[in-house]
Amino acid sequence: MTPYAQNTGSSRTWLKSYYIIRFAVSAVWVALAFTIARSVPALAGVMLVAYPAWDAIANYLDASRSGGLARNRSQMLNVIVSVATAVAVGLALGHGMHAVLQIFGVWAVLAGLFQLVTGLRRWTSYGAQWAMILSGAQSALAGGYMLKQAGGVLPVSIADIAPYAAFGAFYFLVSAIWLTVSDARRRSA
């Protein structure tokens, strides 16, 4: 495996900023999913397409800052899968939320595995990637749960996807804090 970009101060600053931005976007998405979007189907539809689209953009930007997509194949695959998911969700909206949840489940499994690989690869350069590794593993498990739910008969909504996004937000925040603390310790040593 090719190592990530050199562990310079600017690359660590980028990674912290990246994690904070990912946290903020996910937190806003979750807040809207649990409030307004539950009763406004058009907003929920836009948000359901936007979430994997945002993931594709974020992975692309991060890979670009870390040596490019060719050097970061797990992120390249994540970009491809996330774009395909955004398109598939847009098409599935007309077939009901069970179809959307099924697509989200498959995406959560794949994106989680790619995130896990990205976290493992970054560990050697940045350390403090345990939260992203755990998040990737949990994403894959959550995807399995979403697939089970999608096959059921109980009604589902955007609120059934929001906990998945909430855990993602939490892990991005933990990663940003962990890198910040790690940098502070490094400076004081």
Score class of each variant (00 low, 15 high):
2 T>H: 07
2 T>A: 14
6 Q>I: 07
8 T>L: 09
8 T>Q: 04
10 S>T: 15
10 S>V: 13
13 T>N: 11
13 T>D: 13
13 T>F: 05
14 W>N: 04
15 L>M: 14
15 L>H: 10
20 I>W: 15
20 I>D: 06
21 I>E: 10
24 A>L: 15
24 A>K: 02
25 V>C: 03
30 V>S: 03
30 V>M: 06
33 A>L: 02
35 T>Y: 00
37 A>M: 08
39 S>M: 07
40 V>I: 12
40 V>A: 12
41 P>Y: 01
42 A>N: 03
44 A>F: 03
45 G>C: 04
46 V>I: 12
47 M>K: 05
48 L>Y: 06
49 V>A: 10
49 V>S: 03
51 Y>L: 13
51 Y>V: 13
53 A>H: 02
56 A>T: 08
56 A>W: 01
57 I>S: 04
59 N>Y: 08
60 Y>H: 11
61 L>S: 11
62 D>T: 14
63 A>M: 09
64 S>W: 10
65 R>P: 06
65 R>E: 15
65 R>K: 14
68 G>C: 08
68 G>Y: 07
68 G>L: 04
70 A>W: 04
70 A>S: 13
70 A>E: 07
72 N>H: 02
74 S>W: 07
76 M>R: 15
79 V>P: 01
79 V>R: 05
81 V>H: 03
81 V>K: 01
83 V>T: 08
83 V>A: 12
83 V>N: 03
84 A>E: 05
85 T>I: 08
88 A>T: 14
88 A>S: 14
90 G>K: 12
90 G>L: 05
94 G>F: 10
94 G>D: 12
95 H>M: 05
95 H>K: 09
96 G>Q: 01
96 G>V: 02
97 M>S: 08
97 M>V: 00
98 H>G: 05
100 V>F: 01
100 V>W: 01
100 V>L: 03
101 L>I: 06
101 L>F: 00
102 Q>H: 09
104 F>N: 08
104 F>L: 07
105 G>E: 01
105 G>A: 03
107 W>N: 08
107 W>Q: 09
108 A>D: 09
113 L>P: 00
113 L>R: 00
115 Q>L: 15
116 L>T: 12
116 L>V: 03
117 V>C: 08
117 V>Y: 08
118 T>C: 06
122 R>F: 04
129 Q>H: 08
129 Q>V: 05
129 Q>K: 06
129 Q>P: 00
130 W>Y: 11
131 A>I: 03
132 M>L: 14
133 I>R: 00
138 Q>H: 09
139 S>D: 11
140 A>S: 14
140 A>R: 14
141 L>F: 13
143 G>P: 05
146 M>G: 03
147 L>V: 03
149 Q>S: 06
150 A>N: 01
153 V>P: 01
156 V>T: 04
156 V>L: 15
158 I>N: 04
158 I>W: 02
162 A>S: 13
162 A>D: 08
163 P>M: 00
164 Y>P: 00
165 A>W: 05
165 A>I: 08
167 F>L: 13
168 G>N: 11
168 G>F: 09
169 A>N: 06
170 F>R: 10
170 F>A: 15
171 Y>S: 13
172 F>E: 13
174 V>A: 15
176 A>G: 14
178 W>H: 11
180 T>Y: 02
181 V>N: 07
181 V>H: 06
181 V>T: 11
182 S>M: 10
183 D>Q: 14
185 R>H: 13
186 R>H: 12
188 S>D: 11
189 A>T: 12
